[in-house]
Design a protein around this nucleic acid. Structure first.
Lengths: 213, 213
DNA sequence: TAGATTGTTAATCGATTAACAATC
DNA sequence: TAGATTGTTAATCGATTAACAATC
């Protein structure tokens, strides 16, 4: 049984934030840090920092603290950022394009290997160094290429059909920007959702219930 | 002491999802539902559904269940979607434009009242029915208008300056798309973050630790 | 009324925090 | 060595689930 079997989602979702703060410290030339100091910067407890890190091993040194560069590296490995999962983008509209231009997938454990769109006008145009293909080419693309994950930037109404298609082609990993719940249809998928309107509604609630507003 | 003082973030973050599923059921013409049935559809426990809802009041009827339309309405009110907080957008690039065109803020408790950008080439162009203004106009705009929240679609490097500015103008509520932690600088702000790369790193981790990959 | 399903209390489970012995 | 700080166990706190009496 690998250690990682039992790591809770609460811990996992905190890892990217550690990685982010450690990268910053590293860029600033800081080479060692204690759990107390890191906790202070991140506005969490030192206990949580030590507990979180010790899920994966003892990266610190008693009496000294943690090496910033080494700890950053370790967390990167734990997250699997050194991997390069092959991903395809579905929906090369404003939103998909903006995200492709905004993020550097290679630093996040992915390689974008193809972009698809159902709009003939977009097919043939360039995005993220790739030529946009028509959705009809999915089957032939999958015959010749290995694909690990799909990034969906399509409207809610289009998701069900596309996911049925991709699922039948073997895709079990999704990054989903629509308000469609893929996991309620296919329970054996790994899905990370970016539900923008859920997020905005939460902001609305918090503003309504914050005494200063 | 209002009831809402004590609602945990776990519960709050589930509310938009209830709202979404209830809206769907409502559109399908379903008029009543039991906690058991709703839980099944949403893939959670019936206990959780009842506990969550009872934080805000008894919306159900014993022996019958919940009225879909009424429950949807109530949750909308709890979230404050009937409100209309005045929001400004900062950063009218690909990303900001895509989001403005993708979401209907009016249904989410907000009204977009102005868009700002630091790029002279964007100033004067239209976005979301508004004319894009230059960041220099922030002071004069705030003199004449009330603003509740800022939506930030600017690069990480630009956030600190803009937030200092907006904070000095009285803004305490932010929707933040950059990987900059506003709350660690200003602890009395309400911030909802959309950290896309954190999200993608989490997907990477989960794919790495999912036996099927 | 009888059956169904809520509202709510109690039990369980998990996550966070505190404390401290181990050790660099 | 003495001081500092980890790794880890124990205590607390909170969230989820189970159970059931209330009641429509």
């Amino acid at each position: 049984m690998s250690k990682s079997d039992s790591i809770s989602m609460s811990v996992i979702r905190r890892l990217p934030r550690y990685y982010r703060f450690l990268s910053e410290l590293n860029d600033q030339g800081v080479d060692k840090i204690s759990s107390t100091k890191l906790a202070e910067i991140m506005n969490v407890t030192a206990s949580q920092v030590r507990q979180d890190l010790n899920n994966f091993g003892g990266f610190g040194q008693q009496g000294y603290g943690y090496s910033v560069a080494q700890l950053r590296e370790e967390i990167g490995k734990i997250l699997g950022l050194d991997k390069s999962f092959k991903a395809i983008l579905i929906g090369a509209g404003n939103f998909g394009s903006a995200v492709v231009n905004y993020l550097d997938f290679n630093r996040l454990g992915f390689e974008l290997v193809a972009c698809f769109d159902c709009d003939e006008n977009k097919v043939g145009k360039r995005l993220g160094g790739l030529t946009i293909r028509h959705d009809d080419e999915l089957d032939s693309f999958f015959e010749e290429n290995h694909v690990d994950a799909a990034f969906l930037f399509i409207p809610r109404s289009a998701v069900e059909n596309i996911v049925d298609k991709l699922y039948s082609l073997g895709i079990r990993n999704y990054w989903n920007f629509s308000h469609y719940d893929i996991t309620t249809r296919y329970r054996d998928t790994v899905v990370e959702n970016v539900h923008l309107s859920d997020n905005l509604m939460t902001l609305c609630y918090r503003m309504n219930n914050n005494p200063t507003n």
